[in-house]
Structures are given as structure tokens and as C-alpha cells.
Simulated scan of single mutants.
Amino acid sequence: MSTNLTRPTVTVLGLGPMGRALAGAFLDAGVHATVWNRTPGRDAALVARGAVSAATPEEAVAASELTVICVVNYDASDAVLHREEVEAALKGRTLVNLTADSPDRARATAAWAVQHGIGYLDGAIMTPAPSIGTPEAVLIHSGPADLYERYAPVLAALGGAHTHLGEEIGRAAGFDIALLDIFWTAMAGFVHALALAKAEGIAGRELAPFAQGIGAILPPLFAEFAEDFDSGSYSGAINPLTSAVSTMAHVVHTAESHGIESGLMRAAEGLVRRTIALGHGTDGVSRLAEILSRR
């Protein structure tokens, strides 16, 4: 890659929907992209747009100073990277891993990179593939600050907002896992609500506008509960747990009266009842996080 970044080069390993979006965004930004995918044929449209197709991953990484990998998980990325030929080709170069997995796996990969003389940044993509290359994209990164600053101008081609979360390599994955926890718990709650609403003769399209209203009240509550948790105040001024558990019980009763499985809400209700039994009934929902963290 040229040091003045007038014609940067990058290699993209993995051409699933997200990998293709990453490579396409680099091409759109005038970055010379070399691409490789384990399954042949997925690079045809990218090659037609100017990408160079590599026959092997070692050939791909040798073509660029910077390699970006984005595959399904770290088992898949390890299968690509932990090969003698690839390790040799990556030595002295930089790898940005945008594969989603756990913080421990990110730390293990960073240790492997140090062992093989590879510069390493970990990261996560917080928005869907169609957002890549647009202002809506959100990417988070962790690892050596000087390495991030060096390649930030190239990574900017992916669009949107990029945040360096610190040098501890597991921080990006830690943020990603915590945010995915919010997303999938919310999605589980929504599909449960759809089933419950249908049982009560309410169509999903009827419920959706009101569900969006519920979603809209959450951002300020997130900020308030986070402050309560960090400060240890666990305020129940808005909605004490003794009140919250009553509404949870109503959901469980109504759903199960229709034969709808309600394990997720029962688990939440059980946690609240346990917290109340420990003497925290007047506290707010942020107290639950403290209880979950107890050993």
C-alpha cells in the first residue's frame, strides 16, 4: 500500500454477503482490492468491477499490506489463517479481523498474530451489509492505537462511523457481544409478543406501530439505567421491581393460557422475584445486572 494513500490496496478474505459489501465499498472508494473466498465463484461481480481474484489465501494476503477478513466465526477465520503459507505471507503485514466472535477468541488471535509478526486489529460491524459504504455504517475497533491510526484512512472507505475503543484487543468483541445481547433478547421478546397478540386476535401489522412506540422510549431508559448501574444507585423511582414483576406475571399468565411457551419471560420473572427476595424490591431494573454478576 502506498504511504500517501493515493492508491491504497487491501485484501478481503471471505465473500459472504458482508465480505462482498466490504470489498465493494473499497472498490467504490478507489481502493485496489484483491479478494479470495473458500467457495469459488462468489468474486465474479467484484472482478467485473475491478477486483483481483486470488487463487489462494496466501496469494491474496501477499498482494496487500492490509488484509481484512470477515467470515462466519473464528473457527472459520482460524481455518484460513492458521496455515503455514498464510502465516508466512502475513508476516510484517496487518490483519483487521471483522469476524464476529467472543472476546476470548479475539485475544487468542491477537496472541497468534504477535507470535507470527503480524500487526493485528480486531473489530466488529454493527450494521447490516447494505449499510457498508454508506453514512449509516457503524464499525468498532480495538487494538494498538498507532496501527489503527495508520489504517483508519483506508478503513474509512467502508463508510459511516468508526470508533477505536482502546488498545485492549477484546474490547470491540466485548461491545459487540453486549450489544448483540440487547438485539437478540429484544427480537425474542418481539416474536413472543407476535405470538401472544395473534392468540388475542391482533395482527402483527396492528401491533407493530405500538411496538415501535415501545422501542422509542428505550434509549433514554438505557442511558438512565446505565448511570444507575455504574453509580450503584439502582434507582426504582420510575418502576420498582415489585411493580415490574406484576406485569411480567400478567404476560406469562396470558401467554400460557393460550399454550404459548414463555420460558424467556418466566426466566426474567424468576430473576426479579429472586432479587426482591434478597431485599431489593424497591430498586429498579438496573439492580438485576448486579444480581446477575454476583458469584
Rank of each mutant, 00 (worst) to 15 (best):
Leu81Met: 01
Asp230Cys: 05
Leu5Glu: 02
Leu139Lys: 08
Ala113Asp: 15
Arg7Pro: 03
Ala106Cys: 10
Ala195Arg: 13
Ala100Asp: 07
Asn37Asp: 10
Ile132Cys: 13
Phe222Thr: 15
His164Val: 10
Ala113Phe: 12
Ile169Lys: 05
Ala249Gln: 09
Ile140His: 11
Leu196Ala: 15
Ala48Glu: 12
Ile291Pro: 02
Leu15Ala: 02
Met265Gly: 13
Gly160Tyr: 04
Pro103Phe: 02
Ala197Asn: 15
Glu168Met: 05
Asp228Arg: 01
Asp230Glu: 15
Ala48Tyr: 01
Asp101Leu: 10
Gly19Phe: 02
Ala29Cys: 11
Ala173Val: 08
Gln212Met: 15
Val245Met: 01
Thr56His: 08
Ile217Phe: 14
Ala76Lys: 04
Asp43Ala: 14
Ala55Gln: 13
Ser262Cys: 10
Met1His: 00
Pro57Thr: 00
Ala156His: 08
Gly204Val: 09
Gly201Lys: 08
Gly24Ala: 11
Leu271His: 03
Gln212Val: 13
Glu269Leu: 13
Ala208Thr: 11
Ala156Trp: 03
Phe183Trp: 09
Thr6Phe: 00
Thr6Pro: 00
Asp176Tyr: 09
Gly30Met: 10
Phe183Met: 14
Leu271Asn: 09
Leu278Cys: 13
Val114Cys: 06
Leu158Gly: 08
Ile238Cys: 03
Asp78Val: 01
Ile238Ala: 10
Leu22Phe: 12
Ala145Met: 01
Arg7Ile: 10
Leu288His: 01
Ala195Thr: 11
Thr254Glu: 07
Asp230Ala: 14
His280Val: 11
Ala89Arg: 02
Ala55Met: 00
Pro17Arg: 14
Pro219Met: 12
Leu218Arg: 10
Ile238Glu: 12
Leu27Asn: 14
Met248Trp: 05
Arg294Ala: 13
Glu149Lys: 03
Ala100Glu: 06
Val68Gln: 05
Ala244Arg: 01
Gly123Cys: 14
Glu85His: 05
Ile140Asp: 04
Met248Ile: 07
Val47Ser: 04
Ala129Pro: 14
Thr163Cys: 01
Ala55Glu: 07
Ala152Arg: 09
Phe210Gln: 15
Val72Met: 11
Gly117Tyr: 09
Ala157Leu: 05
Ala62Arg: 08
Ser53His: 12
Ala255Thr: 02
Ala173Thr: 05
Pro220Ser: 12
Thr163Ile: 06
Thr9Ala: 02
Ala100Lys: 09
Leu13Arg: 04
Trp36Ser: 14
Arg105Ser: 12
Ile276Cys: 11
Thr3Gln: 10
Leu155Tyr: 08
Thr6Cys: 03
Arg49Gly: 11
Ala255Ile: 04
Val12Ile: 02
Leu194Glu: 11
Ile214Asn: 13
Ala89Cys: 06
Ser77Glu: 08
Ala79Lys: 06
Ala157Gln: 03
Thr3Leu: 12
Thr94Pro: 12
Glu224Cys: 09
Thr67Met: 07
Arg107Gly: 02
Ser235Ile: 07
Lys91Pro: 05
Ala106Thr: 07
Thr99Ile: 08
Thr67Asp: 06
Ile182Lys: 09
Ser2Phe: 03
Gly92Asn: 05
Leu81Ile: 06
